[in-house]
Design a protein around this nucleic acid. Structure first.
Length: 629
DNA sequence: TGGGTCAGTGTTTTT
DNA sequence: CACTGACCCA
């Protein structure tokens, strides 16, 4: 047998699974299916192939009758990727879970109103009960506010003609629905409203769900029940991997909930990773469901190492730099020396912030609940003054690009408006001098590679009016005091404190922050990299610096800490344990790697961890490194 | 004042 | 899920 023949065998080994999916997607003999496929098995390719086969078979007819293939993804990134692969053909309705759920209920004003009218009183009653039991705290203030807002919403219900779905926290109007409401409502309507069912049935004869293990439980259950009702007239196709369920809201034991009559195609190949990495993934998975993947014959080799260090390690980022150097030698891959060529995965954003170097900005703004979403996706309006105006200006100037500087000014500076240029002096030339002076005053802060504080930057801008000052920041630019801090730490005070802390942060944190939120940094969270792949992956397991302890515990999974009472109780009750959750996270992260993977563990009991990972057969003695000398 | 109890707090993603 | 801290009672 030749190598070329082996590779060909690998290519076609899982062809029967794709063929079974193709046959399932039939209007003559429709069969729902659940695809068993682990990491790197080409799930997205199977999905794309399935879509193309539907296009070939039914494309013309679907278009004529206004039918579509529904494809539900979990993230926007996944939706974009699928749209790209099917060339945006409108016969496919590709949408995130939330957006798809919204299309089911959008415009059904009367139903929505009735649903809210039935639900709001219950919610209010529950909140009042909690309020009666609870004590004075941030939570009770929040509850009081919620009760008030829900009452007002209930009162206003009859006046709302159009409900909207844009929960932006800040200006959450009475006509706006929350994420949770949209999901609950669409799930309920889908199971109880025959008219909606008829519409879905005739519009989406085939509904495919990517990452079905993470699809929100209510919607998943509604779809399963819908499929049960209309079996033989509708195909529900689930793509996913139960081992890669990383959100608590996904349906537990999805595989067991799938009826016997469904097709269950299975893929065993992993086309992404080298053999050593797949062997690690199989070993991690052994304690869960024992499902095993196979490497391609042309993907042998690869590296897996674990660095087990004490929790007390002083400078973790520096230690990790040393680890990268060490890995460059061990794997004979110099790219490990280049931090940008390595993807480092942390569990929480603040760990990435600390390593990338925007901790001051992060610690200032992330704690404010109403800012958090905008802060994390880079759309927080006041911050855009720094990321979208000042930063491009400074960068263009540093690059010696006067046209770039002008472009930023022309687009964003109010001093460049026709009106401003006229009134600044008798001539346009005088107006332009104002702009030049304002610009150099700002750029002067950055002379000789200086690193001003964000507050200094704001002062100069407010003095020169080079850019408009965002509403939220104006109170800090007039030199007026905010009055005595009130007894209750209200939202306003929290925001003020947040901005004050932000003003102390060095401006040099702005570019790294911007890079991170644009997903262009070498760091990511465990959750954010689902479905992605990288040549070199470094996984950081650091329980001690985790803020949300319940999310995972590497110390417990790796035998450095005994199970808690809750763990024992969960095992007794057959419920999910922190071991299960941590194992799945570890599986998801390690399987992102194509060539080599390094698991960096900070532990209180390094010796126990070292023993555990070898005993479990995850790493050999040579692959366990406990000191960097 | 010490011990026991329980509410509150924190994390990820979604328009 | 694990921990903190407020509160109650002895």
């Amino acid at each position: 047998m030749t190598a070329a023949q082996d590779t060909l065998d690998d290519e076609i080994r899982d062809a029967p699974a794709d063929e079974q999916i193709r046959r399932s997607l039939s209007l003559v003999d429709p069969r729902s299916f659940f695809l068993y496929a682990g990491a790197g098995s080409g799930k997205t390719r199977s999905l794309k192939d399935a879509l193309n086969s539907v296009l070939e078979e039914y494309g013309e007819m679907f278009r004529r009758r206004g039918r579509q293939v529904g494809v539900i993804t979990y993230t926007n990134a996944a939706r974009d990727e699928i749209l790209r692969r099917v060339k945006h053909d409108p016969v496919f309705h590709v949408a995130t879970i939330h957006s798809f759920a919204w299309t089911l209920i959008e415009g059904r004003t009367i139903d929505i109103r009735r649903w809210l009218a039935a639900r709001l009183p219950t919610e209010i009653a529950e909140l009042e009960e909690a309020q009666a039991k609870g004590r004075a705290s941030k939570a009770s203030e929040e509850r009081a506010r919620k009760i008030e807002s829900k009452r007002a919403r209930l009162q206003d219900l009859k006046n709302i003609n159009v409900f909207t779905y844009n929960p932006t926290g800040d200006n959450f109007g009475r006509d706006a629905l929350s994420h949770e409401e949209v999901i609950s409502m669409s799930s309920e309507f889908l199971t109880t409203k025959p008219t909606l069912q008829k519409i879905v049935l005739s519009r989406y004869p085939f509904l495919l769900i990517d990452e079905s293990q993470d699809t929100l439980r209510p919607l998943m259950e509604a779809l399963l029940s819908f499929e049960e009702t209309y079996q033989g007239r509708f195909v529900l196709g689930l793509f996913g991997d139960t081992m890669q369920r990383i959100y608590p809201h996904g349906k537990m034991d999805l595989a067991e909930a799938v009826p016997e009559r469904w097709n269950r195609p299975a893929k065993v190949m992993n086309h992404r990773s080298r053999e050593r990495i797949i062997r690690l993934a199989n070993a991690i998975r052994a304690d869960a469901d024992g499902w095993e993947q196979r490497a391609r014959s042309d993907r042998s080799g690869g590296y897996a190492f674990t660095y087990i260090l004490p929790t007390t390690t002083a400078d973790k980022p520096a230690t990790e730099a040393k680890i990268r150097e060490d890995l460059a030698k061990r794997t004979e891959d110099a790219s490990w020396n280049d931090p940008n060529a390595v993807k480092t995965l942390t569990l929480e954003h603040h760990m990435a912030a600390a390593r990338l170097g925007f901790e001051a900005v992060f610690n200032a703004l992330d704690p404010v609940p109403s800012y958090r979403t905008g802060f994390r996706d880079g759309t927080l309006a006041p911050l855009r003054l720094f990321t979208e105006r000042v930063l491009p200006l400074v960068e263009a100037s540093r690059a010696g690009d006067p046209y770039g500087v002008m472009a930023v000014l022309r687009e964003h500076s109010p001093l460049m408006s026709k009106a401003a240029l006229r009134t600044a002096g008798s001539s346009t030339a005088a107006g332009m001098k104002t702009v030049r002076d304002a610009t150099s005053a700002l750029l002067k802060l950055f002379d000789n590679d200086a690193d001003p504080r964000c507050g200094d930057v704001l002062s100069v801008i407010s003095g020169t009016r080079l850019f408009a000052i965002p509403e939220a920041l104006t109170e800090f630019t007039h030199g007026e005091t905010l009055g005595p801090s009130s007894m209750v730490a209200d939202d306003r005070d929290q925001r003020s404190a947040a901005w004050r802390a932000f003003f102390e942060a060095p401006f040099s944190e702005i570019p790294t922050y911007k890079e991170y939120v644009a997903d262009r940094s070498p760091y990511g969270t465990h959750q954010g990299v689902k479905g992605l792949e990288f040549p070199r992956v470094m996984v950081i397991a650091d329980d001690a610096s985790m803020r949300f302890k319940g999310a995972a515990s590497y110390e417990k999974l790796l035998g450095a800490k005994p199970p808690s009472d809750t763990d024992k109780k969960n095992v007794r009750d057959g419920k999910e344990t922190s071991y299960d959750r941590t194992r799945r996270l570890l599986y998801v992260t390690c399987t992102r790697a194509e060539e080599s993977v390094a698991l960096v563990i900070y532990s209180d009991a390094p010796n126990s961890v070292s023993e555990t990972v070898q005993k479990k057969g995850w790493f050999t003695a040579e692959e366990v490194i406990t000191s960097l000398d």
